[in-house]
């Protein structure tokens, strides 16, 4: 049998050979311990790199970096902020005028649909690391996220609507931790439930809808917690899912 050049051995390690060639290299390595030893070490290097740096994929995304992915258009964003604060005025007006709300709280509500849609867009396409803790460890997942948020969470069950819990992760959003639960349907569509604290004397709000760059978001406040359900799927179906979540969490 012919010896293989160095490039072929690297291509073997990196999974870039076709089946025939790969089997030939396998056979060669079986009879050549020196080459086999080098190849084993290279494979171990790739594994060590993944073990050392894959956790970065699951880290909460720093908001400055998320913002840096948007085009800087001061005029537009000023307009947006103005629109957002108008919305906040309307909300607080409904919730009870002059209750002495802390100024940071309404902003959290105003930003929630956008932050939730962002978190959805970032993580729902992930193939290898869609969630930090998977549903197989559901009990641990709920306990862990509840502890980090300082509130007892209970991810709603969407089995009747055709979505299974995939798992969840912890993010940062503005002033505090955020839990994200991800669900997937049999045809691989994904929805995410974004949960954060929204305390500060706000009355519970009704159910609201926003559309953020193709992502449908339904959001509400219930007992000091803010919830937002996001999905890039038809609004009518999202509404049904959000209704189910709203009813279950509200109980």
């Amino acid at each position: 049998m012919n010896a293989f050049d160095e490039d072929t051995l690297h291509a073997y390690v990196d999974g870039m050979l076709n089946e025939t060639k790969r089997l030939e290299v396998d056979a060669w390595l079986a009879g050549h311990p020196d080459d086999a030893e080098r190849v084993r070490a290279w494979i171990a290097q790739n594994q060590a790199l993944h073990a050392a740096f894959d956790p970065v994929l699951n880290e909460p995304l720093p908001l400055e970096l998320v913002r840096a992915t948007r085009r800087q258009r001061p005029a537009i964003s000023r307009l947006w902020r103005a629109a957002a604060s108008m919305a906040v005025l309307a909300v607080t007006g409904l919730a009870g005028y002059g209750l002495g709300l802390r100024s940071a709280e309404p902003e959290i509500i105003a930003r929630m649909p956008r932050d939730a849609a962002l978190a959805h867009v970032v993580f729902s396409p992930e193939q290898r690391h869609p969630v930090e803790v998977d549903a197989a460890h559901a009990e641990h997942l709920v306990k862990w996220l509840s502890k980090r948020l300082g509130a007892q969470l209970a991810p709603p069950d969407f089995t009747a609507q055709g979505f299974e819990l995939l798992g969840g992760r912890l993010l940062t959003g503005g002033n505090g931790p955020v839990a994200q639960f991800m669900y997937q349907s049999a045809d691989q569509r994904r929805i995410t439930l974004y949960v954060r604290r929204a305390a500060g004397g706000n009355a519970d709000t009704s159910f609201r809808h926003a559309r953020e760059n193709g992502v449908e978001v339904f959001y509400w406040i219930d007992q000091d917690m803010g919830y937002a359900l996001s999905g890039a799927i038809a609004r009518a179906e999202m509404q049904r899912l959000a209704d189910a979540a709203y009813r279950r969490i509200g109980r």
Binding site: L49, A52, F53, D54, V56, L57, N58, E59, L61, L65, V66, T69, R70, R71, R73, I76, W80, R114, A117, L118, V121, V122, P125, E126, H129, E212, N213
Partner: peptide
């Protein structure tokens, strides 16, 4: 105009991983 740049955001976790290792 899109306020979100999903194309760039999607790549953020991997860009961070590479930069961290680098």
């Amino acid at each position: 105009m899109n306020l979100l740049r999903p194309d760039l955001i999607e790549h953020l976790p991997r860009l961070r991983r590479y930069a961290r290792a680098l």
